[in-house]
């Protein structure tokens, strides 16, 4: 498969079927998995036995590495990130989705850190300057503070 070689997430090159899919931040995955786990608890007595090892480990992972815990905060984070991104480049929404999730997962504190993680927020956007990125990071840290 030729696609295998060209895959590179740092340049946001990912397989075609994943471009159509929606990227999820760790905190969103945590909400989904916890909801599913609660449903299982209602229907069976020993839910831990019902779920796969992959489910169990994923749930542990996303719980440990989620920056935001509350559903409201999670929704706000996605809103803020998509607002800043879409204003700059509307065309490649699907690709940006993954950049958005990286930022939401890692919560960079400085502009340099953010650019190092997701170079595309700097290079591909015509007008995405340091100020705009800084404002975005500020907004995100505010959510965290008030959570």
């Amino acid at each position: 498969m030729s696609g295998e070689e060209e895959e590179n997430a740092s340049e946001l090159k990912i397989g075609e079927e994943f471009l159509k899919a929606k990227c999820l931040m760790n905190c969103e995955v945590a909400l989904i998995l916890e909801h599913k786990y609660e449903q299982l608890q209602q229907t069976s007595e020993d839910p831990m036995n019902q779920v796969s090892q992959v489910f169990e480990k994923s749930l542990q992972y996303v719980k440990r590495f989620s920056r935001y815990k509350h559903a409201d905060a999670v929704r706000q984070v996605r809103e803020i990130l998509s607002r800043y991104q879409l204003a700059e480049f509307e065309v490649r929404v699907c690709i940006l989705d993954s950049a958005l999730c990286v930022l939401g997962n890692l919560c960079p504190e400085t502009v340099e850190e953010a650019i190092a993680m997701v170079p595309s927020i700097k290079t591909k956007g015509r007008a995405h300057d340091d100020d705009a990125i800084e404002r975005m990071l500020n907004d995100l840290s505010l959510i965290k503070k008030f959570e």
Binding site: N8, V54, S58, M117
Partner: peptide, 10 residues
């Protein structure tokens, strides 16, 4: 969950 080359994660 699909890891990609070049991806940054914790």
């Amino acid at each position: 969950f699909r890891p990609f080359k070049g991806e940054i994660l914790e």
